[in-house]
Design a protein around this nucleic acid. Structure first.
Lengths: 187, 187
DNA sequence: TTACGACGAAACGGTTGCGTTCCGACGTCA
DNA sequence: TGACGTCGGAACGCAACCGTTTCGTCGTAA
């Protein structure tokens, strides 16, 4: 029987290694070293670095987010942004996400795992928000939902991950939610 | 006198290596091999992988883009998106950008070079577009310009680089420009 | 024509990680 | 108490690169 505490130590070490050196530079030896564990313990659980990371990413994907229901598009967006920006504020997340995203450009399996995690998280919630607004008649029915999702997710990602703005000014999320709601209503 | 054709072969090889294996995995030996050149030729020009990449990125930053002037916010955005999406369509660009972007999270020098290239390219043009719209009275003066830039740049980046949508449906850029113009007018 | 310097190729010793194997120590369950 | 399986640690041979040095070749400019 594999010891759960050892498994957990390895998992934690992988996250830290991913954040500090990135997927490409990450080595099994480094993971074992950081976890205070023998290489054997790692190989006994996962066949390779890829399997290890795929396993972790898939596990993350499981945690489905609840869709906000404030009764209005702008309010729903505001809540989504609140949750998302809090998640992106964690240094670990903001280091790991772009790294895996870049890796996904080269590795279809990572790309798929990442897409799935995204779809079950952020994108899934956004889609529910748009559908609810459609049903309320708040926005045009039959609008391009993919475009709506880009309008919703793009700006905050750009600001937090690409521009890497350390913190958002007060009122930013509220203004973003208002502007995005207007954009979607214009579709 | 260093031979210019050799220098150019190295530069081209670096782009190819960056695209195929990424910054982290890229090696001087690999670059020289791909360029059909001795390692000495590389080291004679650049002290390290970092200097080499910084040099290339800085060189890219120089090419300033012209700001579109259609006389309207939506039209200007439309033209900006046309140019940007064409650039992002090149596989080399769409592979290298997220890779360097992830690397920038760990290396301040790369981050700075990338920010500078961004500011002198995409972001610079976007800022001019917003300023022109302000002057025309098309949008509220004194609006949050950083937020406007996020609204402009975020969605297309999200769609092209994060979602990695292979090609955009007909009419997508037009609809995006319209929706974004509405969003900015709502600021 | 001669001198210089960049060129590609090869080798240097050193480091790191690969994936595997063997070891003795420890814990758990029968 | 004994058997089993996981544990951390160490070593295996192998491969890739590091940054440097040495070599003989070739092109160019004085």
């Amino acid at each position: 029987m594999l010891r759960e505490d050892v498994t957990e130590a390895i998992r934690a070490a992988v996250f830290e290694e991913l954040a500090t050196v990135g997927y490409a530079r990450m080595s099994i030896e480094g993971i074992a070293r950081r976890a205070g564990v023998g290489k054997t313990a790692v190989y006994r659980r996962w066949r390779s670095k890829l399997h290890l990371v795929l396993d972790l990413v898939s596990a993350l994907a499981v945690q489905g987010l609840p869709a906000p229901e404030t009764g209005g598009l702008e309010g729903d967006l505001r809540m989504l942004y609140e949750v998302t920006s809090r998640a992106l504020r964690h240094p670990v997340a903001s280091q790991i996400i772009p790294d895996l995203q870049a890796e996904a450009a080269r590795n279809p399996e990572i790309a798929e795992a990442l897409q799935k995690a995204l779809r079950e998280g952020q994108e899934g919630v956004a889609l529910k928000i748009v559908a609810a607004a459609e049903q309320r008649g708040e926005v045009r029915t039959g609008l391009d939902e993919e475009l709506a999702l880009d309008l919703i997710s793009g700006p905050l990602y750009w600001r937090s991950v690409v521009i890497r703005s350390p913190k958002l000014p007060k009122g930013y999320l509220a203004a973003l939610a208002r502007a995005t709601a207007e954009a979607i209503k214009a579709l």
